[in-house]
Nucleic acid binder design. Sequence first.
RNA 1: UGCCUGAUAGUAUAAUGGUAGUACGACUGUUUUUGGUGCAGUUUGUCUUGGUUCGAAUCCAGGUCGGGCAACCA
Length: 554
Amino acid sequence: MSEEKSLNFIEEIVEADLAAGKHQSIVTRFPPEPNGYLHIGHAKSICLNFGLAQKYGGKTNLRFDDTNPVTEETEYVESIKNDVKWLGFNWAEELYASNYFDQIHGFAVRLIEMGLAYVDDSSSEEIAAQKGTPTQAGTPNIYRSRTAAENLQLFEDMRLGKFADGEKVLRAKIDLASSNMLMRDPIIYRIKHAHHHRTGNKWCIYPMYDFAHGQSDAIENITHSVCTLEFIPHRELYNWFIEKLSIFPSKQYEFARLNMTYTVMSKRKLLQLVQENHVTGWDDPRMSTISGMRRRGYPAAAIREFCDRIGIAKRDNLIDISLLEFCVREDLNKTAVRRMVVFDPLKVIITNYTGEGEILHSENNPEDPNGGTREVPFSKEIFVERDDFMEEPSKKYFRLAPGQMVRLKSAYIIKCDNFVKDANGNITELHCSYIPESKSGSDTSGINVKGTLHWVSAAHAIPAEVRLYDRLFNVEDVAAAEGDFKDYINTDSLTVVPHAYAEPALLQDSMGVGFQFLRKGYFCADKDSTPTKLVFNRTVGLKDTWAKEVKKGA
RNA sequence: UGCCUGAUAGUAUAAUGGUAGUACGACUGUUUUUGGUGCAGUUUGUCUUGGUUCGAAUCCAGGUCGGGCAACCA
């Protein structure tokens, strides 16, 4: 078990800091804004932040970055907590930036007293214009030279609600000529007469991200504040506030956010999909949200493994979603319980089978020697998959065809003797004969067949609905595609099989587990499933080299 | 056009001046009562031009290309 895994650049920084005695132990944080559901990109950040603390014996706080009351809701807070827990992580403390509003307000006052912040009466457009452009310095306005006393009074009046939204803002007084636009006197407090999901109506002024995040990090003694690349320009500001306020010097480090093929990874776009009913909700199994993946049947361990495999670096990336699917299959192959379900039934009559029927046994999981077996009823009439028969088979087709033999999984070898067509030329029935000596487990027939089919006994079959999912978008790089991302939605991303036939064992199974429907893929019971109406989601298909072969031939 | 960032097989990610490796993918073969799984193997790479050096993916300089920055969002 002593596999040496190389460190990512953040782990290297942490190890160097620890080795240098800069910190006794580390503190990280996962800081979502509660304005939407978490997605797989957040999972990467969660695994990184919690993983760092786990690996180096530190702790991780869950901190809600709730500084914008108009977009944030308790529903989101709850879903985020649920998702982090489900992913398998425990936070040291559940914290909120809003817990620190008093302290942050105090920081602002201190800045004003030091002459490093001022109240600006300009409109948002005026401020934008006065900021200049990246190649042109900004210009100061008359408010910039207000005295500390005047600013103190004005800021207090802002807090007391004497002004309307947008009438005034508090700005840090830094450098209007900085090449970093964020240093050109950034707004640090704005007026919002809005109800906050935690502080209610106590405040009508709220700190901006830049005046809340680093401050919260400092208050919590966060040693390594890890965020994504787009915050690189914020680092200069982050450090400026820490220096001027003489608070705990948290350090910000940035890594590249996760992008994945055939999907979107922004809360704004995900919200749009939900609101405009392109999906059924945040937990629609096609969504890249944690809750969607959970509902679809992705194991938490598979998501963690995926996050581990993609690594941490600073280069922009577009990860192939098939890597995630690989991780899901890898996990489920070891754990999923095998069952047989026929999606598109074709009746097979075993003409020489004279018995009443019998109970056969089949292993629950060939990968797990301790997995046990379940009972599978067999009888004269069974269903097989319609595409497991071809009237005129191609040369490498190992399934049923006139005169061709296959094994029925865990049962007998059968031979197709005849088939019946209706008036329209559709095949309605297969007539086969079975080889009595070929019974699974006690086969003395000496016959070797190339194909093995899944099947269900017609008399014992139970109905089930099966939902098949495909990628939500039909272009690889959705974010880079021209125009509206919604133009690329795959309208065939959901296929419902309303009347599949399942083997009866499935009725007794506990529904929290992952299933493999033999030769069909991995499935899980959907939350819509009831004892009288089973509903399953296809988590991911099996690797299908035959389909690939067929495609090549076509 | 200014500033900030980055560039290693198809996709990711290592090698931290000394043999370019790993995973996924693709392709072979093999095993298999899942055309699944497993096993074995093959394949493909240092953006570019110079420089430093015995030796450069790594250090330096120029170029090229990608991403970000001018929200009272985070």
